[in-house]
Amino acid sequence: MPPRSRDRPARFTTRARRGDVTSDSTDEELLLRFRDGDAGAFELLMRRHRATVFTFLARLTGDRPRAEDLLQETWLRVVAAAPRWEPRARFRTWLFSVARNLATDEARRAVHRRAEPLDDPPGDGLPLAERLPAGDPGPERAAASGELRPKLLEALGSLPLPQREVFLLREQAGVPFAEIAEITGTPLPTVKSRMRYALEALQRRLLELGVEPPAASGSTGT
Protein backbone atom coordinates (compact mmCIF):
# COMPACT_ATOMS: atom_id res chain seq x y z
CA MET A 1 0.00 0.00 0.00
CA PRO A 2 1.56 3.25 -0.98
CA PRO A 3 2.34 5.52 1.91
CA ARG A 4 -0.18 8.14 2.79
CA SER A 5 0.39 11.45 4.33
CA ARG A 6 -0.64 11.15 7.90
CA ASP A 7 0.29 14.59 9.01
CA ARG A 8 -3.16 15.94 8.73
CA PRO A 9 -6.31 14.45 7.43
CA ALA A 10 -6.88 16.53 4.39
CA ARG A 11 -10.58 16.66 4.71
CA PHE A 12 -13.05 19.38 4.82
CA THR A 13 -14.81 18.92 8.09
CA THR A 14 -18.25 20.13 8.90
CA ARG A 15 -17.59 21.51 12.33
CA ALA A 16 -17.98 25.11 11.39
CA ARG A 17 -21.25 26.90 11.61
CA ARG A 18 -22.15 29.30 8.94
CA GLY A 19 -22.17 32.93 9.83
CA ASP A 20 -19.28 32.78 12.23
CA VAL A 21 -16.97 34.67 9.96
CA THR A 22 -17.32 38.34 9.39
CA SER A 23 -15.76 40.82 7.05
CA ASP A 24 -13.39 41.64 9.89
CA SER A 25 -11.90 38.21 9.85
CA THR A 26 -8.38 37.95 8.62
CA ASP A 27 -7.55 36.12 5.44
CA GLU A 28 -6.04 33.28 7.39
CA GLU A 29 -9.10 33.00 9.60
CA LEU A 30 -11.31 32.85 6.56
CA LEU A 31 -9.20 30.21 4.94
CA LEU A 32 -9.22 28.09 8.05
CA ARG A 33 -12.97 28.45 8.28
CA PHE A 34 -13.22 27.34 4.72
CA ARG A 35 -11.05 24.38 5.47
CA ASP A 36 -13.35 23.58 8.32
CA GLY A 37 -16.36 23.52 6.10
CA ASP A 38 -17.64 27.04 5.65
CA ALA A 39 -17.99 27.82 1.99
CA GLY A 40 -19.16 31.30 2.86
CA ALA A 41 -15.74 32.05 4.22
CA PHE A 42 -14.26 31.26 0.87
CA GLU A 43 -16.71 33.58 -0.79
CA LEU A 44 -15.65 36.41 1.48
CA LEU A 45 -12.02 35.66 0.83
CA MET A 46 -12.55 35.57 -2.88
CA ARG A 47 -14.48 38.79 -3.01
CA ARG A 48 -11.85 40.45 -0.95
CA HIS A 49 -8.97 39.68 -3.27
CA ARG A 50 -10.27 38.77 -6.64
CA ALA A 51 -10.15 42.18 -8.26
CA THR A 52 -6.69 42.89 -6.93
CA VAL A 53 -5.27 39.63 -8.17
CA PHE A 54 -6.94 40.11 -11.50
CA THR A 55 -5.57 43.59 -11.91
CA PHE A 56 -2.13 42.29 -11.07
CA LEU A 57 -2.39 39.51 -13.61
CA ALA A 58 -3.92 41.66 -16.31
CA ARG A 59 -1.33 44.39 -16.04
CA LEU A 60 1.54 42.00 -15.55
CA THR A 61 0.74 39.95 -18.64
CA GLY A 62 -0.79 42.71 -20.73
CA ASP A 63 -3.26 40.11 -21.91
CA ARG A 64 -6.70 40.27 -20.47
CA PRO A 65 -8.09 36.97 -21.72
CA ARG A 66 -5.07 35.15 -20.48
CA ALA A 67 -5.30 36.95 -17.17
CA GLU A 68 -8.87 35.76 -16.84
CA ASP A 69 -7.72 32.19 -17.24
CA LEU A 70 -4.88 32.66 -14.84
CA LEU A 71 -7.22 34.20 -12.32
CA GLN A 72 -9.56 31.28 -12.43
CA GLU A 73 -6.74 28.83 -12.20
CA THR A 74 -5.30 30.65 -9.23
CA TRP A 75 -8.50 30.54 -7.27
CA LEU A 76 -9.20 26.95 -8.11
CA ARG A 77 -5.85 26.15 -6.62
CA VAL A 78 -6.86 27.98 -3.51
CA VAL A 79 -9.91 25.75 -3.26
CA ALA A 80 -7.78 22.72 -3.82
CA ALA A 81 -5.12 23.61 -1.33
CA ALA A 82 -7.32 24.87 1.45
CA PRO A 83 -7.73 21.49 3.11
CA ARG A 84 -4.01 21.33 3.59
CA TRP A 85 -3.57 24.90 4.59
CA GLU A 86 -1.15 25.38 7.41
CA PRO A 87 -1.08 28.94 8.59
CA ARG A 88 2.65 29.25 8.27
CA ALA A 89 2.63 31.53 5.31
CA ARG A 90 0.48 34.55 4.93
CA PHE A 91 -2.45 33.90 2.66
CA ARG A 92 -1.83 36.93 0.52
CA THR A 93 1.78 35.98 -0.02
CA TRP A 94 0.75 32.56 -1.15
CA LEU A 95 -2.09 33.86 -3.29
CA PHE A 96 0.13 36.22 -5.22
CA SER A 97 2.87 33.64 -5.48
CA VAL A 98 0.50 31.23 -7.13
CA ALA A 99 -0.78 33.89 -9.48
CA ARG A 100 2.64 35.15 -10.33
CA ASN A 101 4.08 31.70 -10.91
CA LEU A 102 1.23 30.75 -13.16
CA ALA A 103 1.78 33.88 -15.18
CA THR A 104 5.52 33.37 -15.21
CA ASP A 105 5.28 29.77 -16.33
CA GLU A 106 3.21 30.76 -19.26
CA ALA A 107 5.39 33.70 -20.09
CA ARG A 108 8.46 31.51 -20.09
CA ARG A 109 6.95 29.29 -22.70
CA ALA A 110 5.40 31.98 -24.76
CA VAL A 111 6.94 32.44 -28.12
CA HIS A 112 6.73 36.19 -28.02
CA ARG A 113 8.93 36.27 -25.03
CA ARG A 114 12.15 38.05 -25.74
CA ALA A 115 15.04 36.60 -23.84
CA GLU A 116 14.13 38.21 -20.58
CA PRO A 117 14.48 36.07 -17.50
CA LEU A 118 12.35 37.31 -14.71
CA ASP A 119 15.26 37.45 -12.32
CA ASP A 120 17.12 40.11 -14.20
CA PRO A 121 19.46 42.36 -12.33
CA PRO A 122 17.72 45.65 -12.12
CA GLY A 123 18.13 47.91 -15.05
CA ASP A 124 19.47 45.26 -17.38
CA GLY A 125 16.16 44.14 -18.73
CA LEU A 126 15.13 45.37 -22.12
CA PRO A 127 11.85 47.17 -22.06
CA LEU A 128 9.25 44.87 -23.42
CA ALA A 129 6.92 46.16 -26.05
CA GLU A 130 4.07 44.35 -24.42
CA ARG A 131 0.59 44.68 -25.55
CA LEU A 132 -1.47 46.89 -23.39
CA PRO A 133 -4.13 45.40 -21.22
CA ALA A 134 -7.17 45.28 -23.39
CA GLY A 135 -9.49 45.77 -20.45
CA ASP A 136 -12.54 47.83 -20.72
CA PRO A 137 -12.02 50.71 -18.31
CA GLY A 138 -15.70 51.35 -17.82
CA PRO A 139 -17.61 54.39 -18.86
CA GLU A 140 -16.87 56.75 -15.99
CA ARG A 141 -13.19 56.07 -15.96
CA ALA A 142 -12.86 56.43 -19.68
CA ALA A 143 -14.71 59.70 -19.69
CA ALA A 144 -12.78 61.11 -16.81
CA SER A 145 -9.35 60.24 -18.02
CA GLY A 146 -9.76 60.96 -21.67
CA GLU A 147 -6.49 59.98 -23.21
CA LEU A 148 -4.72 59.59 -19.94
CA ARG A 149 -5.45 55.98 -19.25
CA PRO A 150 -3.91 54.53 -22.41
CA LYS A 151 -0.79 56.50 -21.70
CA LEU A 152 -0.62 55.21 -18.16
CA LEU A 153 -1.00 51.67 -19.44
CA GLU A 154 1.58 52.27 -22.11
CA ALA A 155 4.03 53.54 -19.54
CA LEU A 156 3.37 50.54 -17.35
CA GLY A 157 3.74 48.21 -20.27
CA SER A 158 7.09 49.70 -21.10
CA LEU A 159 8.54 48.52 -17.84
CA PRO A 160 10.60 45.36 -17.92
CA LEU A 161 8.82 42.51 -16.22
CA PRO A 162 10.92 42.42 -13.04
CA GLN A 163 10.21 46.07 -12.42
CA ARG A 164 6.64 45.88 -13.50
CA GLU A 165 5.74 43.11 -11.14
CA VAL A 166 7.32 44.85 -8.17
CA PHE A 167 5.55 48.07 -9.03
CA LEU A 168 2.22 46.32 -9.41
CA LEU A 169 2.55 44.44 -6.17
CA ARG A 170 3.59 47.45 -4.13
CA GLU A 171 1.59 50.21 -5.69
CA GLN A 172 -1.50 48.50 -6.92
CA ALA A 173 -1.83 45.49 -4.65
CA GLY A 174 -0.45 47.20 -1.57
CA VAL A 175 1.97 44.44 -0.72
CA PRO A 176 4.91 45.53 1.46
CA PHE A 177 8.40 45.21 0.05
CA ALA A 178 9.43 42.38 2.35
CA GLU A 179 6.45 40.33 1.24
CA ILE A 180 7.21 41.12 -2.39
CA ALA A 181 10.65 39.68 -1.76
CA GLU A 182 9.01 36.45 -0.66
CA ILE A 183 6.60 36.37 -3.54
CA THR A 184 9.20 36.97 -6.19
CA GLY A 185 11.99 35.09 -4.52
CA THR A 186 14.37 38.02 -4.74
CA PRO A 187 16.28 39.77 -1.99
CA LEU A 188 14.72 42.78 -0.37
CA PRO A 189 17.34 45.29 -1.61
CA THR A 190 16.76 44.05 -5.14
CA VAL A 191 13.05 44.56 -4.73
CA LYS A 192 13.57 48.13 -3.66
CA SER A 193 16.04 48.80 -6.44
CA ARG A 194 13.56 47.55 -8.96
CA MET A 195 10.89 49.75 -7.45
CA ARG A 196 13.11 52.79 -7.74
CA TYR A 197 13.95 52.00 -11.33
CA ALA A 198 10.30 51.40 -12.03
CA LEU A 199 9.27 54.76 -10.67
CA GLU A 200 12.02 56.53 -12.54
CA ALA A 201 11.20 54.77 -15.76
CA LEU A 202 7.52 55.52 -15.36
CA GLN A 203 8.20 59.13 -14.72
CA ARG A 204 10.40 59.39 -17.82
CA ARG A 205 7.95 57.59 -20.00
CA LEU A 206 5.01 59.59 -18.81
CA LEU A 207 6.88 62.78 -19.59
CA GLU A 208 7.69 61.47 -23.03
CA LEU A 209 4.06 60.70 -23.53
CA GLY A 210 3.16 64.20 -22.55
CA VAL A 211 1.54 63.43 -19.28
CA GLU A 212 1.71 66.39 -16.96
CA PRO A 213 2.81 65.60 -13.45
CA PRO A 214 0.36 66.76 -10.84
CA ALA A 215 1.31 69.81 -8.80
CA ALA A 216 3.92 68.88 -6.25
CA SER A 217 2.51 68.51 -2.80
CA GLY A 218 4.29 68.78 0.47
CA SER A 219 3.15 65.51 1.91
CA THR A 220 3.26 62.00 0.67
CA GLY A 221 0.46 59.58 0.94
CA THR A 222 0.89 55.92 1.48
Binding site: A51, R59, R64, G135, G138, R141, L148, E171, L202
Partner: peptide, 9 residues
Protein backbone atom coordinates in the same frame (compact mmCIF):
# COMPACT_ATOMS: atom_id res chain seq x y z
CA UNK B 1 -0.49 59.63 -11.78
CA UNK B 2 -0.40 55.87 -11.89
CA UNK B 3 -3.10 55.62 -9.30
CA UNK B 4 -5.39 57.00 -11.95
CA UNK B 5 -5.50 53.51 -13.41
CA UNK B 6 -7.52 52.15 -10.56
CA UNK B 7 -8.39 48.49 -10.59
CA UNK B 8 -9.48 46.32 -13.42
CA UNK B 9 -12.96 44.94 -13.42
Amino acid sequence: LMQGLGEEE
